[in-house]
Amino acid sequence: MKKIAVKVDDLTVAYNYKPVLWDIDLEIPEGVLMAIVGPNGAGKSTLIKAILGILKPIAGSVSIYGKSYEKQRQLVAYVPQKGSVDWDFPTTALDVVKMGTYGSLGWIKRPGQKEKKAALEALEKVGMLAFKNRQISQLSGGQQQRIFLARALVQNASIYFMDEPFQGVDATTEIAIINILKELRKAGKTVIVVHHDLQTVPEYFDWVTFLNVKKIATGPVKDIFNDDNLTKTYGINYKVSIQE
């Protein structure tokens, strides 16, 4: 049995009256590339945000390799939705990627040569080195997404949480991103991705969690990615044609 990278117990989150997430128990084994799928409003992003402490849950707990998230923060990196920030902010691509080093720097200390080098390496990995001095508003959507990915790569974490990294990117960028995610998995990292395109789940991921306020199912894609679970999650009779 593999080690458990992320363990979620009885997690419940509500914004107002209705719960957005209800009593989620989840164990994510180390080294998987996992998709979180579910309809709009199923609480996919909320689940990630609650695990990362951005949202305060009503009940439940999260542990990362057996210890509380607060103690294991440096093991975790986050790629927010691209649309969550204002891309007209006056800064460059390189500067944004450097922000990934802020956590390990801690308060007050400024990034230096070492951090710059790490940021440049990450930019190269996502194929954006040529754009390092570009003002971020002059990047295309796909390029912005890669910058966010590079920022998380700089953190050199063990577990990556990504909120819809394929949203609004073209086919070239999607392939570039998925290749990086697969490389991360090869390096033994755990990658958790909120994902919308059901067609690509079997091709991209080896682990999947079905979510619709409650957890419907979680496990290896080859075992549980079937019409039964899809129907339970999306509420309609879902037929997915898995391309071999």
């Binding site: 945000k49 990362l52 402490g53 951005i54 923060r73 440096q74 975790v76 990196a77 986050y78 927010p80 969550s84 920030v85 204002d86 902010f89 800064t91 944004v96 922000m99 802020y102 956590g103 720097l105 801690g106 308060w107 007050i108 200390k109 400024r110 990034p111 920022r151």
Partner: peptide, 22 residues
């Protein structure tokens, strides 16, 4: 000047700043 880095990252991406432990 002391908190320049913290100001900058909070202005750009508050949620992310939180996950870094600030």
């Amino acid at each position: 000047l002391t908190f320049w880095k913290e100001f900058k990252i909070l202005l750009f991406d508050a949620d992310y700043t939180k996950t870094l432990g600030f």
